[in-house]
Design a protein around this nucleic acid. Structure first.
Length: 943
RNA sequence: GCCGGAGUGGCGGAAUUGGCAGACGCGCACGACUCAAAAUCGUGUACCCGGAAGGGUAUGAGGGUUCGAUUCCCUCCUUCGGCACCA
């Protein structure tokens, strides 16, 4: 027996790491004789220091990859760096370090830190996105997308600092007043011509997750992000001769100025009483009348100063201004005013909406605020109407009449005016009520019925609120009768002042169409489809599907990114750089102004080039690509990072792709994971890749919070540094603790004393194996139960590895260790059962704590390497229990437990329970009414 | 506001998906070893009543379904994420 010595991770960990490296133990090469497994963890950004969050993401993923390896898979588990991006430029501006220098120094450091983890990365597959050999192909992909019509240019606003003369990211804009982080200048929006990828062409396909094993949560997030909605596009002609609006007869419409709106509710078209355009809408200037110009311009400016977040905030009161222009509602020819408001976004739909205030909550609030007409066009499904009977407006016998008619109402004192009646009507009571009202209404009064029906009863007849004209007619009569309502601009504004009516004035449900001309009466379940078809036959619209998803903005006005390989020729327009001239290299000789203006723009010669088509003078694109472009295909570069004839070696691709298991944070659920799926599908359609999805199985880890339960950040000073932990406890302990301390998909706050438990576990395994146990003759029963526990644990650990339940893997191993210690005390060390236990135990540990497992494997005299060993097989017979604990309940409460043979019959279990003294005691002499036997678990006696 | 997750001892968490609540670990208490401390080992540790045997109460709150609910249903509260004037 070798000398026993204390556990020293600082010695054994580096030793095995270099051994594995030297032997190429984790080399992942094509091997058609073995099933492949491509395990991928999200590409880290080389910020300089490896964070505990990186460990939390990578160490359990590594353990899972190692488990798959032991299961017989040929596993590729690569690592690389997402090395373009803003922080490198910030370092350049603040500290005068070149982004390249800063980035590659960080990478060097992080490689060392990553090695200390003892992960099975095959570094021969490393890919670094800022290497020219890498971004060569990022550029190449751009050109392919361009050639296939999936890349295009359009104007798009950015946050811009006019003082620094530079575009700002959202994180560079600070404070309520939205000022520049460097110079405090208020930020403005600047419209720039920029490159986009047509992600929206794939919107429908991106909603299909049928071939994916992805968490429901992520699929929901993506589905909402893509945001499919069905409805119709409708064209509203702009009325260009403003003076004729008043004249009414000679309305001339200009069909060159059609405003297209997207609506999910074409069935409400007859209720569209105004339109709202986004302040950025291209027709705004044309529509705006001279007298409204100043106000509109002010509002537009104000809207551009707001962030999207501010514009989209719901707690803010809606604002807008009238443009002075009118459009014609195409279904009824009525002129409707055109407004602009910041709640309409140019990036969604067509940037213009038809407003139906009677059936859209936002539009209702907007119309009430600005006095715009509100006309109900969809019947209330519940049919409820309400009527307030003004004090003194009816003859005194009216209440008895109502009671006799079975109509529900309450009488209440209304201020000093007297007693009013608050009537609630069912659908079939309205006509009867109107008839009664006509008999009882006193001269020079009116009564309104609102909700299910919209009727105004006057001395001489009944008016219905069915359009803009009747709105004004009714209002005029009411004002004449009761001057206090004179300030109201619409009928709805007038009735909205009465709280009693609040719940019946507006609804957004589907229902039978009313007040809708020839379409009135169309039932709610078919109205939408019927109108969409009708619009098409009339040539004023069509059924349409709209997505919330936007095209992907690729352009960044930055230096440290992959150049966009495009050349602008005055004669030939935008042309791609010929593929044999790639990569377009980033110039190293760049200088920063303290303002952060992109040095590519300032470079004296870089942008000057010739047109690949005509050979004339031309200019390079000086914008670079979004780094999400680099991370959309890194899993492909990993396959063959040195390959020079294409982005990847097709043979290697054919073996490894798709990614079998992808692990990473939930924060990438929408952006990165949608971009990479889009990228893969586009590449498939261009004949570059095969299959429809790049990553088959996705699993997310949660977040490690600081000990104060807050998000870790340098400013809070709650950051946990893995290097210190590795130094103090060893990588194995850190790995084990990260797997143990929380459910992986949930994450949890860090607990610096909790890690002691994992450290103790690792040390106890060390002692168990290396220190001799007492001699003795262990009871055969004890050895049998040790073996049972071993195989039960193996079963649990196997199950938990399959399901990414890492915390219970470690706790199961801890439990078994406790039993092993007890067995050792009883002299089990010399037995075959003991040998088997150690053999299996170390193999179960190997994915979790690879170094100590290797060291102890060699200690017990097994051949190098444990990481070449197969995953142990569960012996079901050995794992089987002989007895169970039968729980005895009386009326659902546990009263006793019996140890019985595992195969006990239902009858025997019932008999045993009924014969039990404690059960009898708790029955207190009652006869059992019912006995429930759950085989193998419990007997519940109900009595 | 909408969508989704979570809420279990002093703390992190477990519970084969309707069947023994609190595995495992941290912490704490007591004990052993030690001159002492650390480390290590052992014992105990949800709460209440009780000397004990035992009994009662407990999985955010309240209701429901069920022989039986941490698990399913309804209402509400707290909290964490994501999305959001989406027409």
């Amino acid at each position: 027996m070798p000398d026993t010595h204390p556990y020293q991770p600082a010695e054994i960990e580096p030793k095995w790491q270099s051994q594995w490296e030297a032997d190429g133990l984790y080399n992942a090469d094509i091997d058609p004789s073995r099933p492949k497994h491509y395990a991928l963890t999200m590409l880290p950004y080389p910020s300089g220091d490896l964070h505990i969050g990186h460990w939390y993401a990578m160490a359990p993923s590594d353990a899972r990859a190692r488990y798959m390896r032991m299961k017989g898979f040929n596993v590729l588990f690569p690592m690389g760096f997402d090395s373009f991006g803003l922080p490198a430029e910030n370092a350049a501006i603040k500290r005068g370090i070149h982004p390249k220098t800063w980035t590659y120094k960080n990478i060097e450091n992080m490689r060392l830190q990553l090695r200390s983890m003892g992960a099975m990365f095959d570094w021969r597959h490393e890919a670094v996105s800022a290497d020219p050999e890498y971004y060569h192909w990022t550029e190449w992909f751009f050109i392919q997308l361009f050639k296939h019509g999936l890349a295009y240019r359009k104007m798009s606003p950015v946050d811009f600092c006019p003082n620094c003369n530079t575009t700002l990211a959202r994180e560079q804009v600070w404070g309520e007043d939205r000022h520049c982080e460097r110079c405090d200048t208020p930020v403005i929006k600047k419209d720039l011509d920029q490159w986009f990828f047509k992600t929206t062409s794939y919107a429908a396909e991106l909603l299909d997750y049928s071939s994916l094993d992805w968490p429901e949560r992520v699929r929901t997030l993506q589905t909402n992000w893509i945001g499919r909605s069905e409805g119709a596009e409708v064209q509203f002609p702009v009325i260009c001769d403003q003076s004729s609006v008043i004249g009414e007869d000679l309305l001339i419409t200009d069909h060159r100025s059609l405003i297209t709106v997207f609506t999910t509710r074409p069935d409400t078209l007859w209720g569209a009483t105004f339109m709202v355009l986004s302040p950025e809408h291209p027709l705004v200037d044309q529509i705006t009348t001279p007298d409204r110009k100043a106000e509109v311009e002010t509002y537009k400016l104000q809207a551009t100063r707001l962030s999207d977040i501010d514009r989209e905030a719901t707690d803010k009161e809606k604002t807008g201004v009238f443009t002075g222009g009118y459009a014609r509602n195409p279904v009824n020819g009525k002129p409707i005013p055109i407004w602009i408001a910041d709640y309409v976004l140019m990036t969604y739909g067509t940037g213009a909406i038809m407003a139906v205030p009677a059936h859209d909550e936002r539009d209702f609030a907007f119309a009430i605020k600005y006095g715009l007409p509100i006309i109900p066009v969809i019947d209330r499904p519940d049919g409820i109407s309400k009527s307030f009977v003004f004090p003194g407006s009816v003859s005194p016998s009216f209440t008895e009449t109502l009671t006799a008619a079975g109509i529900q109402f309450s009488s209440q004192q209304v201020g000093a005016l007297g007693v009013g009646l608050f009537v609630t009507l069912q659908r079939d009571q309205v006509d009867g009520f109107v008839a009664l009202m006509r008999q009882h209404l006193q001269p020079n009064n009116w009564n309104e019925i609102v909700g299910g029906r919209w009727l105004f009863v006057f001395d001489d007849g009944v008016l219905e609120l069915d359009g803009v004209e009747s709105d004004q007619a009714i209002l005029a009569r009411c004002k004449a009768i009761y001057p206090p309502v004179s300030a109201n601009r619409t009928v709805m504004e007038m009735v909205n002042t009465l709280p009693f009516y609040k719940d019946v004035l507006f609804h957004s449900e589907y229902g039978t169409m009313i007040h809708s001309g020839e379409m009135s009466g169309a039932p709610g379940d078919v109205a939408k489809q019927r109108i969409a078809a009708w619009l098409e036959t009339k040539g004023i619209g069509k059924a349409a599907t709209n997505y919330r998803l936007r095209d992907w903005l690729i352009s960044r006005q930055r230096y440290w990114g992959a150049p966009i390989p495009m050349v602008n020729c005055p004669a030939c327009g935008w042309q791609p750089v010929p593929e044999d001239q790639l990569p377009v290299l980033l110039p190293d000789d760049v200088e920063w102004k303290p303002t952060g203006e992109s040095p590519l723009k300032l470079h004296p010669t870089w942008a000057k080039t010739t047109c690949p088509v005509c050979g004339g003078d031309a200019t390079r694109e000086t914008d670079t690509m979004d780094t999400f472009m680099c991370s959309s295909w890194y899993h492909l570069r990993y396959l063959s990072p040195k390959y020079a004839r294409g982005p990847f070696d097709p043979q290697v691709y054919a073996y490894w792709m798709p990614v079998d298991t992808y692990t990473g944070g939930i924060e990438h659920a929408t952006m990165h994971l949608i971009y990479t799926r889009f990228f893969h599908k586009a590449c498939r359609d261009m004949g570059i890749t095969t299959g429809s999805e790049p990553m088959i199985q996705l699993r997310n880890q949660g977040m490690v919070l600081g000990e104060d339960h807050e998000k870790m950040s340098k400013s809070r000073g709650n950051v946990v540094a893995p290097d210190i932990l590795v130094k103090r406890y060893g990588a194995d302990t850190v790995r084990a603790y990260l797997m143990f301390f929380a459910r992986w998909d949930m994450g949890a706050p860090w607990n610096s004393s909790g890690i002691e438990g994992s450290a103790r576990w690792v040390r106890r395994v060390w002692s168990l194996v290396t220190e001799p146990g007492p001699q003795g003759t262990p009871a055969p029963e004890m050895l049998k139960s040790l073996r049972r526990k071993l195989h039960q644990t193996l079963k649990r650990v196997t199950h938990d590895f399959e399901n990414f339940e890492f915390n219970t893997i470690v706790s199961a191993l801890m439990e078994l260790l406790n039993d092993l210690y007890k067995a050792r005390e009883q002299g089990a060390t010399g037995t075959p059962e003991w040998a088997e236990a150690l053999n299996v135990y170390l193999r179960m540990m190997a994915p979790v704590t690879p170094h100590i497992a290797e060291e102890l494997w060699s200690f017990i005299g097994k051949p190098y390497s444990i990481h070449h060993q197969p995953w142990p097989m569960v012996n079901e017979a050995a794992a089987a229990e002989e007895t169970i604990t039968l729980v005895l309940q009386v009326n659902g409460k546990v009263r006793d437990r019996l140890v019985v043979p595992v195969g006990i019959s239902e009858d025997d279990a019932r008999q045993a329970a009924l014969a039990n003294e404690t059960v009898q005691k708790h029955l207190e002499g009652r006869a059992p009414k019912k006995v429930i036997v759950v085989p193998g678990r419990l007997v519940n006696v109900v009595g």
